[in-house]
């Protein structure tokens, strides 16, 4: 518990939470590791957790029929993983696979969600943080979609 609390205190995602709130969140957490190639979760499975990746890299993948799974994002040490536990029907939308040995803090989100329903102050504080995370990922996805490195027209600019 003490170790988990220290881990949470060192993460900017949890900055601003009171010590009591951090202790509460830590009470729903456990350290969990995954070998390379193991899935943290699979598409369509119940989303009843979220993760703080402490080290290692995780690939977010989507199943493409007849093709290899497509990686649309990788996450690494310090990144938060998973928000489908916040939104009905609480199912994962993608696969998350360990690309190398991955060490995480795993949060029992189903239980935490229930707690948040009864503790709106904590619920709001966590919702704000996950909303920021979702917005950052949305902005990143838009940027990725824009194909900003595609060749332009003509010799405009510094060409390198």
């Amino acid at each position: 518990m003490r170790e988990l609390l220290e881990i949470l205190q060192g993460q900017s995602f949890f900055d601003g939470l009171t010590e009591a709130q951090l202790k509460l969140v830590a009470a729903f957490a456990a350290l969990r590791s995954f070998e390379a190639g193991r899935y943290l979760f699979r598409e369509h499975e119940p989303a009843d957790a979220f993760y703080l990746i402490r080290s290692g890299r995780v690939s977010l993948e989507s199943l493409l029929p007849g093709r290899q799974p497509g990686t649309f994002m990788t996450l690494g040490g310090g990144d938060m993983l998973g928000w489908s536990w916040l939104i009905p029907p609480y199912r994962w939308h993608y696969d998350a696979r360990a690309l190398e040995p991955v060490h995480t803090a795993h949060f029992d989100a189903a239980a935490l969600r229930e707690r948040m329903d009864h503790d709106p102050v904590l619920g709001y504080a966590l919702h704000k943080r996950f909303t920021m995370l979702i917005v950052e990922r949305l902005q990143a996805a838009r940027l990725q979609h824009l194909d900003i490195y595609a060749s332009g027209e003509g010799d405009v600019g510094l060409g390198g």
Binding site: R57, S59, T71, F72, M73, T74, G76, E136, Q139, A140, L143, Q144
Partner: peptide, 8 residues
Amino acid sequence: GDVGVVTQ
């Protein structure tokens, strides 16, 4: 390697 945008 990593997949995603440079801002991440």
